[in-house]
């Protein structure tokens, strides 16, 4: 049995998906012990967490916490871990989760293991964690009395336990220094277009497009399918398409129903970004391209010929 504290990040009254997965890992690590969930500010999200495995929920409320403030969140987490005597502090393996847990670890002077896909209690605790965006795994030992880590996204299954938990609201102690890093404004996203990370279908072009103009058929097919346009890193480096369209380890990680990758060779960096796709259709001149080992379907051929032919066939099918 262990005492576990889980940071549950939220948006608009609901817990983040990956945070519920982290809660499932927390429950596993507690092994019958207490599973404490910490929520910053979001009362509606806090009320739901008993059903997702929390045995008690701590809701931090503070007038200065209406905007994200990662150092404040880290301080609240670290203070609470101390007062609960938590042996595991867990968070979601997201940008927000990783930065807050890293800051909590820096504050406490403890190690931090990001994006863990397996955790084995013991002395020392050992973990399996992601390297290279998940293309490689690392087995590591954590030498610390309190283990601070995040759960890799989409590894652990969130479990609806049907339980309930009391929500204890409290006002955390915060200094000005904790609030020095705080969101002071928002820049809205340009409207229109399909969001790459949420798209049901993504059509990408790679180096095989040959030029910025070579993306015409990619954009055309994406338009017909209501799909998001993506690309490989080689393409953004060449300046043919903006980085916001890059699928990959250092771009956007996608999880569509169907991913159409045209003229994309399938470098490790790219596959780390599209492995969440349910099905992959590769269109490539080279039947030996690495993308073929990740694809479910393939068309062997030049994307400049294949894509317009697909678009034309879709138009015919719809016209009929």
């Amino acid at each position: 049995m262990a005492t576990v504290l889980v940071l549950v990040t939220t948006a608009d009254g609901a817990a983040d998906k990956v945070a519920l997965q982290a809660l499932a890992l927390g429950r596993q690590l507690a092994d019958g012990g207490a599973v404490h969930a910490l929520v910053i500010g979001d009362a509606a999200a806090a009320a739901e967490l008993g059903a997702w495995g929390a045995s008690s929920v701590h809701l931090a409320q503070h007038p200065q916490l209406d905007a994200p403030a990662p150092d404040a969140a880290a301080r609240i987490l670290d203070d609470l871990a101390g007062s609960l005597g938590a042996t595991f502090v867990v968070g979601p393996g997201t940008e927000e989760g990783n930065t807050v847990l890293a800051r909590a670890a820096a504050r406490a002077g403890l190690p931090f293991a990001a994006n863990c896909s397996a955790v084995t209690p013991g002395s020392p605790v050992t973990v399996t964690r992601s390297r290279w965006g998940g293309s490689l795994l690392e087995e590591a030992a954590i030498h610390a009395d309190r283990v601070i880590l995040t759960a890799a996204a989409h590894v652990f299954e969130a479990v609806d336990t049907g339980g309930s938990a009391d929500v204890a609201a409290f006002t955390p102690a915060l200094d000005d220094a904790d609030l020095a890093v705080r969101v002071v404004g928002r820049v809205p996203a340009p409207s229109g277009g399909v969001s790459l990370s949420d798209a049901k279908v993504v059509v990408s072009g790679g180096r095989g497009a040959g030029s910025a103009d070579g993306f015409g058929p990619v954009v055309e097919l994406a338009g017909l399918l209501g799909a998001a346009v993506g690309c490989s890193r080689a393409v953004t480096i060449a300046g043919w398409r903006p980085h916001t369209e890059q699928v990959g380890q250092t771009g956007t990680k996608i999880a569509p129903e169907l991913y159409i990758a045209a003229g994309v060779s399938g470098a490790t960096q790219h596959l780390a970004g599209c492995k969440g796709a349910k099905r992959i259709l590769a269109i490539n001149k080279d039947p030996e391209a690495p993308i073929m080992t990740a694809a479910d379907y393939a068309v062997i051929g030049d994307m400049a010929e294949v894509l317009p032919a697909i678009s034309a066939a879709i138009r015919r099918a719809r016209g009929a």
């Binding site: 259709l281 694809a295 379907y297 393939a298 068309v299 051929g301 010929e305 032919a309 066939a313 879709i314």
Partner: peptide, 18 residues
């Protein structure tokens, strides 16, 4: 290790893709 199902070659594969 996936074995991609080849739908065809070149423009002629379009109907199979649809």
């Amino acid at each position: 290790a996936k074995q991609a199902q080849v739908l065809g070659r070149g423009a002629e594969a379009a109907q199979a893709v649809v």
